[in-house]
Simulated scan of single mutants.
Amino acid sequence: MTILKTVNVSKRFGKFAALDGVNMEVKSGEVFGFIGPNGAGKSTTIRILLGILKASEGDATIFGMDAWKNAVEIHKRLSYVPGDVNLWPNLTGGEVIDLFMMMRGSSNQKRREELIEKFDLDPSKKCRTYSKGNRQKVALVAAFSSDADLFILDEPTSGLDPLMEKVFQDCIIDAKRAGKSVLLSSHILSEVERLCDRVGIIRQGKIIETGTLQELRHLTRTNLLVETKQPVTALHELKGVHDLTTKDQALSFQVDPEELDAVMKYVSQFGLLRLESSPPKLEDLFMRHYETDTGAGGAS
């Protein structure tokens, strides 16, 4: 079942097109990774989904309801955590968590206490005394204490140390096990790779790739490290070979998936002594999409 869907969503600010026909779908019980550099359109898309901005064109629906017209009804079943949390300075962290829980009609005090302990948060301190990381913790505890059906998280681990990032990842896994849906916007590719069922990559306001990690990996190059008895000649002339370098008498290079068989047959003629292969990572795909833009002064 589809929980969240955008169809040809565009957003213009004057002559500037922040979004240009964004199509995205998040299914029930799915963790969907939404990645792209700053300025690519992630936060604009999320603001439209939250009903903060109205799309210039297209449709955005959550739980089958219009994200703009039915925002109040949608927010009863939704939890949102931004990348930079602003809290009431004179309230304590615990009071803010309780306020958010009350607004959602949630009263799971046991879950609240468990999360406060896991995130190592002192709820008795005033919010004005909190660091950025502690403000994020307050928002995360409030979000995951609720019984929301959908979590929209925009760079939620910004300011958290690695130990707290692990706690956050455990919360996502728990939410998924409970059948909840998650839209996770993140610049930490390892986090996306570890948690997400499917990924959408946005560039300059357009979704350029969407699919499961397995589906996306076939588009990326395999990393190889090869050492042979005899020097390999003319490897750089073979189709599908990229970034060839010599490293401690071994050759390091990348191979396009469709040329891997031919390259391996060619290299094996020189007598293999060592062969190391590492699978393509999400980061490889991400960088391949952006390397052309950086050369042209685009997004990086």
Results as ranks from 00 to 15, higher is better:
N108K: 07
D98M: 04
D122E: 12
N134W: 04
R112M: 11
Q109A: 10
L121V: 12
V138L: 12
Y130W: 06
M103A: 13
K126P: 00
L115H: 01
M102C: 05
K126G: 04
Q136L: 08
D98T: 06
V138E: 10
V138Y: 10
S145E: 04
S106F: 11
N134T: 10
F119Q: 04
A148K: 03
D120A: 14
L121N: 07
A143S: 10
K118F: 10
E117T: 15
N134L: 07
D120Y: 03
M101C: 12
Q109W: 12
S106H: 13
L99C: 05
L121W: 11
R112D: 04
Y130P: 00
E114F: 02
F119M: 12
K126H: 11
V138K: 09
D147A: 08
F119R: 04
C127K: 09
K110F: 04
A143W: 02
S146E: 05
K110Q: 14
D122F: 06
D122G: 08
L115S: 02
E113Q: 15
D122Y: 06
F100I: 14
R128T: 10
V138R: 09
L121T: 10
E113T: 14
A148T: 07
C127T: 13
S106L: 01
S107A: 14
S145A: 12
K126A: 05
E114G: 01
L115F: 00
G105C: 08
F119V: 05
S107H: 13
K118E: 15
A142Q: 01
I116F: 09
M103Y: 09
M102G: 11
D122W: 04
A142M: 01
N134E: 09
N134C: 06
R104K: 14
R128Q: 15
K137R: 09
Q136G: 06
F100C: 11
M102P: 00
K110A: 14
R128H: 15
D149V: 00
K126T: 07
D147I: 04
S146H: 04
Q109C: 06
P123F: 13
K110E: 14
G105Q: 10
L150D: 02
M102I: 02
R135K: 15
R135F: 08
K118A: 15
A139K: 07
K126W: 02
S107F: 11
L150W: 03
D120N: 14
L140D: 00
